[in-house]
Amino acid sequence: MQFATINQSGTLVISVRERRIDAASAIRFKDAMREATQAAQGRVVLDMSGVDFVDSSGLGAIVASMKQLGDGRKLDLSGLTPDVDRVFRLTRMDSVFGIYPSVDAALGLRASG
């Protein structure tokens, strides 16, 4: 599972560099999230704009990633592609996460260009 991470004014932004978070990759995703988030504190934004498929195993792994953050740390999501967005809405998980159209929107920045 490949991630690109940046720390921007106290928020850790993790961009998923794989197209699928599914049963075949859910455990690797959860492990990679633990590794990417354990050194930082505070809010995490997961940029999903490169992910075009999430099944319920992947959804479970994203929920588990929020739980393993602990201490009330917030996991927000940005850039959900249409099929991924649909899975979050149908399962009502869109009410559990903060969901933003883009990383800039999640960070409260105006889109550039």
Partner: peptide, 25 residues
């Protein structure tokens, strides 16, 4: 049956969505 996701974070479901999605779609 859609798992209940209204509780605190530590109680959120991590699975059990499959048949709900299948029947809905």
């Amino acid at each position: 049956i859609l798992p209940d996701s209204s509780g605190p974070v530590r109680t959120l479901p991590e699975g059990g969505f499959g048949w709900y999605l299948i029947h809905n779609l």
